[in-house]
């Protein structure tokens, strides 16, 4: 696989070949050098897809919701790309990606492309490659791209940088967990979904969310709370209507341009940071410098902060 092969694959993707799309996602995930080339070829064709993020605790019904939302988008004549992200085991590097089980009926729909990804040790819930996969689905011509992540820890915050509309899914049986999630999640949700709304305590859950919203300042968009029973398709139309309202809201002024500016900046800096780190670590390891400094710290001749400063001074000299 070299740069010429990549150009051929990109041309195939732009012609609508889903095998080329699948292969390119694999390449951006695994081959940094080819990735740079792929993304520069793809970038001019991106910017048309509307990206929706869905996050929530394990078992809250995210995958089923994505499946039903996709069905609703399809009946409205839209094409959909789905990226389902599950965590990588920190111990073995492996992962079981099971979100497709809830989306089997969409597997053979030509207007839908589903890709499962693992977090691969990235600190946030969104693997770096997920951003690139979104761009590929966008260039492929999907009207909507839905990104599904498990909401435990940093993941739900990262999704904000990728999605235009972020949806947080909660369930009535979460009890006090709602309190626990409010810190990070309240700020990122553009829409709340209370799924499994046929369970008891629905109203109490809705009220708890309302109270949190009353206390927060989210500007002039107040996140709506939509009740759904995803397994039965209840509330899905209302959810999509809410998404469309939020879309109209961010597009109505220059909000979306500001969003693009801020995200592009974050994204560029993130790429710089990772490339710089890779380069630095490689150099330090090859020269044996890192080993020497680590030993100094182990032998208490130097503290870790001074060690880091010594490494940074080498950067200054260049």
């Amino acid at each position: 696989m070299d740069e010429d092969d990549v150009s051929v694959l990109v041309a195939s993707l732009l012609r609508g070949d889903r095998r080329a799309l699948a292969r390119l996602i694999t390449l951006v995930e695994n081959r940094p050098r080819l990735r740079d080339r792929i993304m520069s070829l793809i970038y001019p064709y991106t910017g048309n897809a509307y990206v929706i993020g869905i996050t929530g605790s394990p078992g809250s019904g995210k995958s089923t919701l994505v499946d039903k939302l996709t069905g609703e988008l399809r009946t409205r004549g839209k094409t959909v790309g789905i990226i389902a992200i599950d965590p990588t085991s920190p111990f073995t590097g492996g992962a079981i990606l099971g979100d497709r089980i809830r989306m089997l009926s969409k597997s053979t729909d030509e207007g839908v492309f589903i890709r499962s990804m693992s977090t691969r040790g990235s600190l946030g819930g969104l693997s770096r490659a997920a951003y690139d996969a979104i761009a590929l689905l966008d260039a492929f011509g999907k009207d909507f791209v839905i990104v599904e992540t498990v909401g435990t820890g940093q993941a739900e915050v990262d999704i904000v940088d990728a999605a235009y509309t972020s949806i947080v899914v909660v369930t009535p049986d979460m009890g006090d967990e709602i309190q626990a999630i409010k810190a990070g999640i309240l700020e990122i949700a553009d829409i709340f979904v209370v799924n499994k709304a046929d369970l008891e305590n629905v109203e109490a859950t809705v009220m708890a969310l309302q109270m949190m919203l009353d206390l927060s300042d989210k500007g002039d968009w107040r996140p709506p709370i939509i009740k759904t029973v995803a397994t039965k398709g209840v509330g899905i139309k209302e959810l999509l209507d809410a998404i469309e309202r939020h879309r109209a809201y961010i597009c109505e002024t220059d909000r979306i341009e500001k969003m693009h500016y801020k995200r592009s900046k974050v994204r560029i800096l993130e790429i710089v940071r990772s490339k710089l780190m890779d380069k630095l670590i490689r150099e330090l390891e090859n020269s044996g410098e890192l080993d020497r400094i680590v030993k100094c710290v182990v032998e208490k001749k130097m503290d870790p902060y001074s060690a880091a400063d010594e490494i940074l001074r080498k950067l200054d000299k260049k």
Binding site: S89, G94, A95, I96, L97, G98, I101, L104
Partner: peptide, 11 residues
């Protein structure tokens, strides 16, 4: 998975 592979489980 324990051998480090990514497994897409289809049910």
């Amino acid at each position: 998975r324990d051998a480090g592979m990514e497994v897409i489980y289809m049910g």
